[in-house]
């Protein structure tokens, strides 16, 4: 009992002594960090996802603090955070549109042709190394192996009917999945534009018809039907220019291949 009390006294005393010493040293050697910088670091999400393109949240805070990064640089915090940052910095919030990831393939299990059955590691990066770039007939299509799901830190991607689908509400546009997809299928698109083209195949109409029921064959019906000239066919693939799209949905109805989809 006596020894226990002694130990407690000695260690407690040493701890107290050094604690007091440290607090004096802390006062003496205080660094003056700007309170703005501190509060910036406080309001950032702190997940260090790297979606802003910098090393982490505190790196982003410093860039914003020194005026090198825009206030809307953090994709995770969204508009709310943008305004908070602008408030702290006392500047106008720079508003750019919220983005979301979109996987440009609608060729689900039912619609597309398979060359063989893949029994391997559940990962596109493994599957894509096989002959023909995976089991799908279409060399451009989503394999549904879930490489994007594994890298997504926000649980925003799931596989539905053999193709990966992004939950727009959960997506924070950190672009990690864009880099992970071996088929380069994932694109960042404006969150509020609901018309999207679900095909990335550039094989030529004949091969696409053979491999997928919903692949874009470049028939130009969408281009012609769009009053605003928002859709253009490049090569054999339709492309949408999101800035001017008002989401009327005419192209969705006109598309004979049902590869233009309206999400949300």
């Amino acid at each position: 009992m006596n020894a226990v009390v002694q130990v407690m006294l000695v260690l407690g005393g040493l701890g107290l002594f050094f604690g007091v010493l440290l607090s004096f040293a802390g006062m003496k050697l205080k660094t003056n960090t700007d309170p703005k910088l501190e509060s910036l670091k406080d309001i950032l999400p702190g997940v260090n996802c790297g979606g802003c393109g910098l090393a982490g949240c505190s790196a982003f805070a410093e860039e914003v603090f020194h005026g090198k990064a825009e206030t809307d640089g953090c994709p995770v915090g969204g508009a709310e955070l943008n305004y908070k940052i602008a408030d702290i910095m006392g500047i106008h919030a720079s508003v750019s549109t919220r983005k979301t990831a979109y996987i440009k393939c609608v060729g689900s299990d039912k619609e597309s042709l398979f060359l063989f059955k893949y029994h391997g590691v559940e990962d596109c990066r493994a599957a894509v190394r096989l002959v023909g770039g995976g089991s799908k007939g279409c060399a451009y299509g989503c394999l549904g192996g879930g490489s994007c799901i594994k890298v997504c830190m926000f649980d925003a991607i799931s596989v539905v009917d053999g193709i990966a689908v992004v939950d727009n509400e959960k997506c924070t546009a950190c672009t990690v999945c864009v880099k992970a997809c071996p088929k380069n299928l994932i694109e960042m698109v404006p969150y509020d534009k609901k018309i999207r083209i679900g095909c990335n195949a550039r094989d030529g109409a004949k091969s696409i018809r053979a491999n997928c029921k919903v692949g874009c064959i470049g028939c130009k019906l969408c281009e012609k039907s769009c009053e605003y000239g928002v859709i253009q066919t490049e090569g054999q693939l339709a492309r949408i220019f999101y800035e001017k799209c008002n989401g009327c949905g005419v192209c969705v109805e006109k598309c004979p291949r049902k590869c233009i989809v309206s999400v949300l």
């Binding site: 260690l11 010493l21 440290l22 050697l29």
Partner: peptide, 28 residues
């Protein structure tokens, strides 16, 4: 006090304190 068996924990405590001071000094 016959508490030699505490030496490791005491030494780590002392080192930790000194490192903190050095850290503050360098930061400044």
């Amino acid at each position: 006090l016959g508490l030699e068996f505490l030496h490791i924990i005491a030494f780590v405590l002392i080192t930790a304190c000194l490192v903190q001071v050095v850290e503050m000094y360098l930061k400044k």
